[in-house]
Amino acid sequence: MANKLFPDARSALDGLLFDGMSIMSGGFGLCGIPENLIAALRDSGVTGLTFISNNAGVDGFGLGQLLTTRQIARMISSYVGENKEFERQYLSGELQLEFNPQGTLAERIRAGGAGIPGFYTRTGVGTLVAEGKEHKDFATASGTETYIMETGLVADLSIVKAWKADPYGNLVYRKTARNFNPVMATAGKVTVVEVEELVEAGSLDPDHIHTPGIYVQRMFVGKDYEKRIEQRTVREREQA
């Protein structure tokens, strides 16, 4: 077994980064994002990046850090709210955006990881999403329906956050922090994972493993997680 374990995020990314590369970043909003790896990318100074991510973090945190430092040139994304700097850069023409319906984005990543170059979907037909894409009619149970073709996505690098890992790189995610992480782990030419806990080989129930270690090339144990919440809404306690 090749040694997949590195001491920290910087060393785990060593030799993998270059200007203009594409990177998939796991997480949904701020839930399950690879905080240590994003900070290491910021500190590396790599530029001209294309990021494939559900969103772009918030101002000053998550991928928002890389917007502040102007390291992201293009986003392939689904939700772009919560970030004023993203809005400013996009409206001023500093940042390119390829917008995707969320389910389409997830399926494009899954397809890329499975070696599927393209697929047809009804989502987006008749909207701006469909412009410039191949249209094809299919017979369905309810009659003839028009579909558009979407292409699979792969990236030079996938950065992923997991809860537990064994030395082989088998991964377990925690609750909703699973989100985009498993599909992105399959669709990077190289996948680097930060985990909260490293456990002994054989201690993970095979039925509970979400990502098999065959997809993981490098990993490290992260630290100092903030685990922010984008928006916290509470109600007043009822009076006793």
Results as ranks from 00 to 15, higher is better:
Leu105Ala: 03
Leu105Asp: 01
Ile109Gly: 08
Ala111His: 12
Ala111Gln: 11
Ala114Arg: 14
Gly115Thr: 07
Gly115Leu: 04
Ile116Gly: 04
Ile116Ala: 09
Tyr120Lys: 11
Thr121Asn: 07
Gly124Tyr: 12
Gly126Thr: 10
Gly126Ser: 10
Ala130Met: 12
Glu131Tyr: 11
Gly132Tyr: 05
Lys133Val: 11
Lys133Glu: 01
His135Ala: 07
Lys136Ser: 07
Lys136Pro: 10
Phe138Arg: 01
Ala139Asn: 07
Ala139Lys: 12
Ala139Tyr: 05
Ser142Asn: 08
Thr146Lys: 01
Glu150Tyr: 09
Glu150Thr: 02
Gly152Arg: 00
Leu153Lys: 06
Val154Asp: 02
Ala155Met: 09
Ala155Cys: 11
Leu157Phe: 13
Ser158Cys: 09
Ile159Met: 11
Ile159Ser: 14
Ala162Gly: 08
Ala162His: 01
Lys164Ser: 02
Ala165Arg: 00
Asp166Pro: 07
Gly169Ser: 02
Asn170Gln: 07
Asn170Phe: 06
Val172His: 05
Val172Gly: 00
Val172Ser: 07
Arg174Ser: 14
Arg174His: 15
Arg174Tyr: 14
Ala177Cys: 06
Arg178Cys: 11
Phe180Asn: 02
Asn181Asp: 08
Asn181His: 02
Pro182Lys: 07
Pro182Met: 05
Val183Thr: 09
Met184Ala: 02
Met184Glu: 11
Ala185Asn: 05
Ala185Gln: 00
Thr186Ser: 13
Thr186Ala: 14
Ala187Gln: 06
Ala187Ile: 10
Lys189Glu: 14
Thr191Pro: 14
Thr191Gly: 10
Val193Asn: 01
Glu194Trp: 12
Glu196Gln: 13
Glu197Leu: 10
Leu198Asn: 09
Leu198Ile: 15
Leu198Val: 15
Ala201Pro: 08
Gly202Ile: 11
Ser203Gln: 13
Asp205Ala: 06
Pro206Trp: 04
Pro206His: 03
Asp207Ser: 10
Asp207Pro: 05
Ile209Cys: 09
His210Met: 11
Thr211Met: 10
Thr211Val: 15
Thr211Gln: 04
Pro212Ile: 00
Pro212His: 02
Gly213Tyr: 04
Gly213Glu: 10
Ile214Pro: 02
Ile214Asp: 07
Ile214Phe: 02
Ile214Lys: 04
Phe220Asp: 06
Val221Tyr: 05
